[in-house]
């Protein structure tokens, strides 16, 4: 697809140049989780009262196969700093 074609052909990667991190900055992470495995795992983490940083929100999908490019691009466009897909 587009990203694959871009880097593979040109060889020049269009990855953003790293910038220095402002003080107290917290990344805003968005996760896409498949209902049967990753979402269930997130639940189990809660059931066992494991704690992890709160700056991630989870969007439930029937299966990661449902994920569309535009979902990830929309998240980045809106300023999300990291997308995590698990299934």
């Amino acid at each position: 697809m587009v990203d694959g074609a871009v880097t593979e052909q040109t060889g020049v990667s269009t990855i953003e140049k790293p910038r220095e991190i402002p003080e107290g900055w917290e990344p805003n992470v968005l996760a896409f989780a498949c209902h049967y495995c990753a979402f269930a795992a997130a639940d189990l983490a809660g059931v066992m009262r494991l704690s992890y940083p709160p700056n991630v929100k989870i969007i439930r999908l029937p299966c990661t196969g449902k994920l569309d490019h535009i979902h990830i691009l929309r998240a980045f466009e809106r300023g999300v700093d990291g997308v995590f897909v698990a299934g």
């Binding site: 697809m1 587009v2 269009t14 953003e16 490019h69 535009i70 691009l73 980045f76 466009e77």
Partner: peptide, 22 residues
């Protein structure tokens, strides 16, 4: 052939917007 349809146009648009922002 997943090259230039409406979906690919939307994706390309989003990529261009982010590149412009960068």
């Amino acid at each position: 052939c997943h090259a230039g349809g409406g979906k690919e146009a939307e994706i390309l648009t989003s990529l261009l917007r982010m590149k412009a922002a960068q």
